[in-house]
Amino acid sequence: MLLTAEVPPPEPVAGRIPGNKGIWAGILSEMTEFALLFGVYFIARAHYPEVFRAGPAQLSTLAGTLNTVMMISGSYFVAKAVHAIRQNRQQACLRWLFLVLLAASGYMVIKALEFQWNLSQGITGGRNLFFTVYYYLTFTHIVHVGWGMIGLLWVMVRARSGAYTPADHDGLEAFASYWHATDLAWLVIFPLLYVLH
């Protein structure tokens, strides 16, 4: 009787929350924030269809595409890191996390180069409503990637110190969930701003 009181019953698999509830409060807030910004995009597009049709052609498709590859790859690398720790491969987990850091850094460098290129073309937020929305959405996304990179560094320190085990790696899962959510936001930004004429 005492033993059953001390050992809680296993959580049903169908109800499992990856990471922890706190990170999901953050993720759902993030998705709500982006949903509102996408709402602004759609309303602005409805009012100024010509401006929004012409906008993507003036942006660097190469930069948008490379950043999408960076975000998707970062998401893949972190999924592999979680998979590695479940198999108790701690060094492999750390190597995958290092690749996430490379992908995130690559994203930041490409974004900086893209903004520099934009400015050399005279593309500022005040040019027209498409670019106002473009800068709002992309700057917001950069901020979320920045928060994620701080979390990533913390998770790397924890992984290096052997804090994660196959039985206990909620912190790593929480970071992974956040990083995937940031990837998901970009998977909407890319087609809306760079592809859809």
Binding site: V13, P18, Y76
Partner: peptide
């Protein structure tokens, strides 16, 4: 473009994020 967006998002949600077999509310959201 819209279908591609939907497919890519669904794949990340279901398999990278592992929500396919996780909490139903989070998965549906």
């Amino acid at each position: 473009v819209a279908l591609t967006m939907a497919f890519k998002g669904r794949m990340v949600v279901d398999h990278f994020m592992e929500l396919k077999t996780a909490n139903r509310t989070l998965r549906n959201l």
